[in-house]
Design a binder for these strands. Sequence first.
DNA 1: TCTGACCTGCGA
DNA 2: TCGCAGGTCAGA
Length: 268
Amino acid sequence: MPELPEVETVARQIRSQFLNKRITEVIAQPAIIFRDITAAQFASELAGKKLDAVRRYGKFLFWQTGNLFPMFHLGMSGIFLRDKKLSMYPQHIHISFEFEDGGNLYFQDARKFSKVYLLRQEPDFDNLGVDPSKENFTLINFRKLLNLKKMNIKTLLMDQKIIAGIGNIYASEILFGCGIRPTRSADSLSSKAAERLFYEIKRVLNAAIQRFGTTYTAYRTVDGSAGTNQNFLKVYQREGEPCIHCGRPIKKIIQNSRSTFYCPKCQR
DNA sequence: TCTGACCTGCGA
DNA sequence: TCGCAGGTCAGA
């Protein structure tokens, strides 16, 4: 599921529905998604703990349960569902959490690209770049960061060590929104273009959060419903369709083995 | 820096 | 049947 708006949506929903509730039972199926811990250990250590906090950094979701910090990266298709019956792929449910009030939360991932950790201390995310929803994502810092990088701007936006949270859909949408061609070198952007990009990152991500994320394939909210941001995408998966501004067909190229969509006239 | 591998499901 | 999909990572 995975970009910042989807993970933020999930964090908010888990927080509103399960915060401060005790986890009475955890059932975890052995799967490659568990990192540095077995499924059985994960389940036994979390049973009986209270969900004290639900937070997000970049694409990582992490909880605080007493002195333990379960952390999840949702990969391409990891989703949390509060009701198993809503699941399209019940065979791929890897973890079941039962809470004291009888509510259930399930973690499911058909493709098994997700990663699940159980940390002994709060994660610091020192290895990740700035999260664009946090206070330290400032225009001054962003300009400095661009000036240092010769890589193309789309690759930079998606590099989690530089900016944490942007993935393939939002990278294309952000660059379209501020009229910057995805192949441009980051250090070639004018001060003004950098400023447009900075504010467009915030605008696109915030709008997507308000719409509960983008459901393109697997992603669902915790209630099992689709997000709605896919109805507002301007370029992603719209190859050949007319640009909403100039009418020219949207172009698709491959960058770093990932699809990029842009308007050749509006984005320079 | 680039490519392939990791997985499964879906649509052309 | 094949190619592609909101992501990462190791290895060339």
